[in-house]
Amino acid sequence: MILAEVESMLNTDIPTLVGGVALLFGIMLLLVRAIAGPTNYDRILAMNAIGTKTALFVALLGFITERPAFLDIALAYAILNFVGTIAILKFIRHRRLG
């Protein structure tokens, strides 16, 4: 009953909203790790995880706004994130991309 009232007040589905806020809370924790992180690898890991969260966020927005095409965009983000992290790690290890 209360949930329905809150839902009508926020004009959004409660589960998707909770999902979004939880996702942003996760991003916040990762941001703290990226700022505080003692080593460089903590920061790279935080960046990679935030990239994953970005893909999830795009997919979630697709669910909220009922546009399933957003899932494809989320997949593209996931690929981009993977390639970017590999490139950064390679750069640190070999000092060049080749």
């Binding site: 991003i27 941001l31 990226a34 700022i35 992180g37 460089n40 920061r43 790279i44 935080a46 960046m47 935030i50 990239g51 970005t54 966020f57 795009v58 927005l61 957003f70 965009i73 983000y77 970017g84």
Partner: peptide, 25 residues
Amino acid sequence: LFAAAILSSIYSLLMACFWTSMDAV
């Protein structure tokens, strides 16, 4: 400066989230 580079990357990812939310995919 390495942390700054990574943080600017994180800034871009978060802005990408925001643009998506603003309907500018």
